[in-house]
Amino acid sequence: MTTPGSETIISVRDVEVAFGSHKVLDGLSLDVDRGEILGLVGGSGSGKSVLMRTIIGLIPKRAGTIEVFGQDLSRIAEDERRGIERRWGILFQHGALFSSLNVQQNIEFPMREHLDLPDGFRRSIALAKLQMVGLEPAVATRMPSELSGGMTKRVALARALALDPDIVFLDEPTSGLDPISAGEFDALLRTLQRTLGLTVFMVTHDLDSLHTVCDRIAVVSGGRIVAHGPMSDMLASNHPWVRSYFRGRRAIEREHRIATPMP
């Protein structure tokens, strides 16, 4: 496993994104190192998800450059771009599982499209991924509409991992999960990151996830990154928003909760 801080895998420089006259990202720059788990936080509407969607190419940018694996995505040919898209996996906020396919077919989908594998082999890879995210093989034949919120996110993660990506992008992976499932999800993420050497780019609101799994945290406010570093930097920061987020009421309550465990 590579140590964090060794190599930049995503580099965002002076990116500007606007919808009409409303500027969402205004000269934002951010580096993500290979093998780290980066947590991206910010107030509602601050442009966290927009940044993630801009990096993966769903939202066009007005200015600036974005390099992933050292290549500028807007300047390369389509087949090279496809090559890059095979090396990342994305977990959307609501899972975005294909509703017409069952769990197994959902996980097989990226492999079916990009790899030429025999059916049986592909099926066993899909089942292995399903087990990797902590689900029973019996889930494989269910339809997405029959899954609970936590299961949907796990299946979506399994699909994101189907092609053994180098980077996974997670959009609020623990939102809508109960604290136990969220904790399990965090642990799972940590394990996967350690064993597979994943780089994780995670948009989140969950203070617990930020504390337990993130190597570094970046804070978006006013269309820019206002703080970037490990948790200790966040706690020491003087930026008003950062201070109220990490030292605010919920954060202090969390400290109490941890200091005095439930009887």
Binding site: L58, E85, F92, A96, F98, S99, F109, H114
Partner: peptide
């Protein structure tokens, strides 16, 4: 449900 975005990001 972002399924179309998911297809797009899979190349």
């Amino acid at each position: 449900r972002e399924e179309i975005d998911a297809i797009r990001t899979m190349g």
